[in-house]
Design a binder for these strands. Structure first.
Length: 583
DNA sequence: GCCGTTTTCGGCCCGACTGTTTTCAGTCG
């Protein structure tokens, strides 16, 4: 059974093959854009297809809708089979090598019959590439290096790893004399859960020292490029870092450009063209009716992103929304969401103590949360069946309740401390505590921890059972993904959202950067359906409470406003909500 | 192949860097 991701991958593969074939680039891009649209969908293509809604999706027209339908119904695609007979699919892997694009791939294939990375590496080591047209010894050496780098590389980097690394490099570069301002751009600034490479922008009139500082850092494994204003390095960690330097007067256009997404930038540039300007990272330049830049006409520089959007007739669009997922249209209609911020968070509804697998006592966690400005917390240790997490028996759970009540009193209203549980949804579909225990608790989180590879029907039923229980208030990290090692469980999210809508149960955005679960597209859909959200730390140690900004970033990417998030509510409102749910 | 408050046909963002070249194509973001 093909998933959204399978179909997105297939379209991307077709795009590369068409590019190698020499197809016009716009047709290639159609497949690529369709793949990207599908990858971000919060719903099963199968369900959308059943409703006849495929062509309502962005970048999907009649042709691609028919291809999706064929893939869903037969698991195969006639068009792809024919294309494979013409263009060896192995060439797609070759194009993944840094520095090798469709033209080179075609050259190696046509001239030397190379159709695999192994074949290419052997040819390069045998010195067979250098004599090809537009090739030389240097190119050949670079290909060998890039293939070696490819095998070292582990794919995309979790945001939680990339962001601290990027901040460290930014500080290094800002220390270079002449560096006036700096920012992390790219997918880190947009808050994507995983990062392809680190993009850093520096404002300065003297780019060379900054470029030199980058390539001479001690943790640089390889210099990928070293130009006057733009350089790239690969770090020993495998992370790629791109740095660009522009004048401060151009900071607005530069930061916009460097933040992306590419699709968002294309939309902005099209809007600029409609207003008679060509937009790039340097400036707005007037164009004539043919679309060519008028050379001697004055250009407009923007020092802030606000000015860039203003010139396009738009309000400022927060970076987290810049995915060409409707934010341009919302901005034009003055309907951008008032995105949630860290300051909106009052409570934290999911955390652990030494009673299960945490490092601090109830009292210490309460103090740590208070020190961070929380007004209320819920202690949610693991339930009895989770042996690996030192889960609490019913007796220990009730014992713990006495301690939580005592600590709540001791805190004298500085912070409220509630008693809850993170209860397992067991593999057999049962919940880990009986109703008569759950009803004694202030708040119940239900989570998946074991048997995550069950088939869709079985594992979905586990979550639906929890949603139907009136004592369950929140589904913790709903898909149980673990970035980048573990895929989300194969859940019928349509069914889960429908059930949560009916029961009024909240869904969590878990802030741990290895989870970020729900991810943004799901969070956006949940909010659209009126399902309450909670943004929690799931802290097992006090410093993990500082991971909440990752959850906020994810929520913002999901167009989430504070009012949809139950732990932004004042404690009285939060308590009233849980009471209304049956306590 | 998609898309449309200029268009149902004719458009489709834009520049930096590299290597191999004597002026630019390919790649990347």
């Amino acid at each position: 059974m093909l998933t959204n991701r399978d179909i997105a991958d297939r379209f991307e593969k077709i795009a590369v093959m068409l590019e190698i074939k020499g197809e016009i680039i716009h047709r290639v891009l159609s497949y690529r854009r369709a793949g990207e649209s599908i990858r971000e969908l919060p719903r099963d293509l199968r369900a959308i297809a059943a409703e006849g809604g495929l062509t309502d999706l962005p970048n999907i027209g009649d042709t691609l809708a028919a291809k999706i339908t064929e893939l869903l119904e037969t698991g195969k695609l006639e068009f792809y089979e024919r294309l494979s007979a013409e263009i060896p699919p192995g060439l797609v892997d070759i194009v993944a090598i840094n520095g090798v694009g469709p033209k080179k791939a075609r050259l190696f294939w046509k001239e030397l019959g190379i159709v695999t990375i192994e074949g290419l590496e052997a040819a390069a080591r045998a010195g067979k590439l250098r004599d090809l047209e537009k090739m030389g010894e240097k190119s050949e050496k670079k290909i060998i290096e890039a293939i070696e780098a490819l095998s070292r590389r582990t794919g995309r980097t979790p945001l939680g790893k990339a962001l601290p690394a990027a901040q460290a490099i930014l500080q290094r570069l800002l220390a270079v004399p002449g560096a006036l301002e700096g920012a992390i751009g790219g997918s880190i600034r947009r808050g994507r859960p995983t990062i392809g490479d680190v993009d850093i922008l520096i404002a300065s009139d003297h780019a060379a020292p900054i470029m030199d500082a980058l390539v001479s850092m001690e943790n640089v494994a390889r210099v990928l490029g070293h130009g006057p204003t733009k350089s790239s390095v690969e770090l020993l960690s495998g992370l790629q870092v791109d740095v660009r330097v522009l004048e401060k007067a151009r900071w607005g256009t530069a930061l916009c450009y460097f933040t992306g997404s590419q699709a968002h930038n294309v939309r902005l540039r099209n809007l600029a063209l409609k207003r008679g300007f060509s937009l790039n990272e340097h400036a707005f330049s007037p164009v004539d009716e043919n679309g060519s830049i008028v050379e001697d006409a004055p250009k407009t520089l923007c020092a802030t992103e606000e000015e860039v959007y203003a010139l396009l007739g738009l309000p400022f669009i927060p970076p987290e929304l810049r995915e060409d997922a409707g934010e341009i249209e919302a901005a034009q209609a003055s309907k951008l969401p008032a995105l949630i911020t860290m300051n909106d968070l009052r409570g934290d509804l999911h955390m652990h103590t030494t009673w299960s697998d945490g490092t601090l006592s109830v009292r210490e966690m309460a103090e740590a949360a208070y020190a961070r400005g929380r007004e209320y917390i819920v202690i949610t240790d693991h339930s009895r069946s989770l042996g690996i997490g030192n889960g609490l028996s019913i007796e220990r759970l009730l014992e713990q309740q006495e301690e939580v009540r005592r600590v709540d009193a001791e805190m004298k209203g500085r912070i409220r401390v509630f008693h809850g549980t993170e209860m397992d949804m067991n593999a057999d579909g049962s919940l880990d505590y009986p109703d008569e225990v759950l009803e004694k608790l202030d708040f119940v989180v239900a989570s998946l921890h074991v048997s995550l590879r069950q088939d869709r029907t079985t594992i979905t039923r586990r979550v639906l059972n929890a949603l139907q229980n009136p004592h369950v208030d929140l589904i913790g990290h709903p898909t149980a993904q673990y970035i980048p090692d573990r895929e989300p469980a194969d859940l019928d999210m349509d069914a889960i959202f429908e059930a949560a809508k009916v029961s009024g149960t909240a869904l969590e955005i878990n802030s741990n950067p290895r989870r970020l679960d729900l991810e943004a597209p799901y969070a956006r859909r949940a909010v659209e359906m009126g399902i309450p959200i909670a943004i929690d730390s799931d802290a097992h140690a006090p410093e993990q409470m500082d991971l909440l900004p990752y959850g906020i970033l994810t929520a913002r990417r999901g167009w989430v406003e504070a009012r949809s998030v139950i732990n932004t509510w004042p404690v009285e409102q939060f308590m009233a909500w849980t009471r209304a749910r049956g306590r």
